[in-house]
């Protein structure tokens, strides 16, 4: 289970790349891929190097438009990170 104190990074076989046709950011892993929207791509980029979930949440909150509720940012980013972990795309420690 991921929480604010978890340390994580993208798993070794996962790559974040732009799709040459659509220009959208993709998380690529063996035989599969995820086509990401802009916010998901930003979160995934922050996972490229080992970091804490708290750090990711703080940086996404700082980048979000003024007035975006912090609770919404935290819950939606956490849900996205859990979806990546469920697919084995993250290496998580320290939770």
């Amino acid at each position: 289970m991921i929480d604010r104190n978890s340390r994580l990074r993208l798993a070794r076989q996962v790559r974040l790349k732009a799709d040459p046709r659509s220009g959208k950011q993709m998380l690529l892993y063996p035989e599969r891929g995820l086509e990401l929207n802009e916010i998901a791509a930003r979160v995934a980029a922050l996972c490229a190097e080992e970091t804490t979930v708290g750090e990711i949440l703080d940086r996404m909150a700082a980048a979000a438009a003024a007035g975006t509720p912090r609770e919404r940012i935290d819950s939606e980013v956490l849900e996205f990170l859990c979806a990546l972990e469920d697919r084995g795309l993250l290496v998580v420690s320290g939770s």
């Binding site: 998380l27 035989e31 086509e35 929207n37 916010i39 930003r42 975006t68 849900e79 996205f80």
Partner: peptide, 15 residues
């Protein structure tokens, strides 16, 4: 940056 729910579409590359 305008906030939107982070989302993705899963693609089976081999198919």
């Amino acid at each position: 940056m305008k906030w939107e729910t982070p989302s993705f579409v899963e693609i089976n590359m081999s198919a």
